[in-house]
Simulated scan of single mutants.
Amino acid sequence: MTKSTKFKVAVVQAGSEIMDKEKGVAKTVCLIQEAATQQASIIVFPEAFIPAYPRGMSFGAVVGSRDSEGRKDFRQYWDNSITAPGPETQAIGKAAKQAGAYVVIGVIEKDSTGSQGTLYCTVLFFGPDGELLGKHRKLKPTGSERLIWGQGDGSTLPVFETPYGRLGALICWENYMPLARAAMYDKGIQIYVMPTADGRDTWTSTVRHVAAEGRCFVLSCNQYSTKSMYPEAISSRAEFQELPEEMSRGGSCIAGPLGELIVEPVYGEETILYAELDLDQIVEGQFDFDVAGHYARPDIFQLTVNEKAQKNVVWGN
Results as ranks from 00 to 15, higher is better:
1 M>L: 10
4 S>W: 04
11 V>T: 09
14 A>H: 05
14 A>N: 07
23 K>G: 01
25 V>W: 06
27 K>R: 13
30 C>E: 11
36 A>Y: 07
36 A>W: 04
37 T>C: 03
37 T>V: 08
38 Q>L: 05
39 Q>M: 04
41 S>C: 12
42 I>L: 09
43 I>A: 03
47 E>N: 11
47 E>A: 12
56 G>K: 07
58 S>K: 10
60 G>K: 12
88 E>N: 06
94 K>Q: 13
96 A>D: 02
97 K>A: 15
97 K>R: 15
105 I>C: 00
106 G>S: 09
107 V>E: 05
109 E>V: 10
112 S>G: 15
123 V>N: 07
127 G>S: 14
134 G>E: 04
137 R>W: 07
141 P>A: 01
143 G>P: 02
143 G>L: 11
146 R>L: 10
147 L>Y: 06
155 S>W: 06
164 Y>I: 02
172 C>E: 02
177 M>E: 11
192 Y>Q: 09
195 P>E: 13
196 T>D: 01
208 R>C: 12
213 E>T: 02
215 R>V: 11
215 R>G: 01
223 Q>G: 00
226 T>Y: 00
228 S>Y: 10
228 S>P: 00
230 Y>W: 13
231 P>N: 03
237 R>M: 14
238 A>C: 07
248 S>E: 14
258 L>P: 00
260 E>W: 04
261 L>F: 01
263 V>P: 02
266 V>C: 05
270 E>D: 06
275 A>C: 03
275 A>W: 00
278 D>W: 06
281 Q>S: 13
282 I>T: 08
283 V>H: 09
283 V>P: 02
287 F>D: 15
290 D>Q: 06
292 A>E: 11
300 I>F: 08
305 V>F: 15
308 K>G: 06
309 A>F: 00
